[in-house]
């Protein structure tokens, strides 16, 4: 009886998609609930209390973005948006309105399961206090108390902005962070339109902590949306 008994609610109108997701999820021992419409989905969130919601944006009865808004009025359940929409604007809107992550159709099962794990971990109560003093991913080590970053044994010197940028991403490791979100956290709300700040500093940061900055291992770019720290 581990965390894998978590319950995933699929709000998706396409039967084939639900079938594939059910097989993929059940193979990982997740409990699966299905809803075909937004209304059904919302009522199942209220009555069945799922641990993660997989939400398709193109539902027959209600726009996915509105579902997120309604849901966020009374529930903090992690929501992963799955959408065939190419429009980056929709993904950013979904994230800004409270979705935790997104996946663009078509996607592989491995990718999906990884995202669900991240979402569950961030939602679990023991991570809420953020009390961990040291973060480790591969050979990257961050000591939050001493504000020090190591690559293997080599100590890396970061400017205050670079350090703040890194910690914001690391604390949300695995989750996509929009440009605006990052800027608000690092530079403050006055600078939200200056997205090039993130790009320039991210470039600098990559050169310092990545072995090959053009093929980054940790600091991944989500084109048009933002960045994600990959553990």
């Amino acid at each position: 009886m581990t965390e894998n008994q978590a319950i995933v609610l699929l709000i998706e109108d396409e039967r084939q998609m639900r079938r594939f997701l059910r097989v993929a999820l059940e193979s990982e021992k997740y409990g699966v609930l299905e809803a075909e419409t937004a209304a059904d989905g919302l009522s199942q969130v209220a009555t069945r209390n799922p641990d993660v919601v997989l939400l398709d944006l193109g539902l027959p009865d209600l726009d996915g973005l509105e579902v997120i808004e309604k849901l966020r009025e009374w529930s903090a359940v992690p929501v992963i948006v799955i959408s065939a929409r190419e429009k980056e604007g929709d993904k950013i809107k979904a994230l800004d309105r409270g979705a935790d992550d997104y996946l663009t159709k078509p996607f592989g099962a491995g990718e999906l399961l990884a995202r669900i794990r991240v979402a569950l971990r961030h939602a679990s109560p023991k991570n809420q206090d953020q009390g961990e003093a040291v973060f480790v991913a591969a050979d990257l080590r961050i000591d939050f108390l001493k504000r020090q970053v190591f690559c293997g044994t080599r100590k890396i010197h970061l400017t205050p902005i670079e350090y703040r940028l890194l910690t914001v991403l690391v604390k949300n490791a695995g989750k996509v962070m929009t440009h605006r979100h990052i800027i608000r956290e690092v530079w403050g709300p006055l600078y939200v339109e200056q997205t090039h700040y993130v790009r320039v500093f991210m470039n600098q940061l990559r050169k310092k902590i990545e072995t090959d900055s053009t093929r980054p291992r940790f600091l991944l770019n989500e084109p048009g949306i933002g960045y994600r720290f990959k553990e």
Partner: peptide, 18 residues
């Protein structure tokens, strides 16, 4: 059009086809 770092986008493509 936005002011972008070209290396970054090259990186995204390389990651995808790694």
């Amino acid at each position: 059009k936005e002011w972008q770092a070209l290396e970054e986008i090259i990186g995204v493509v390389l990651n995808r086809i790694s």
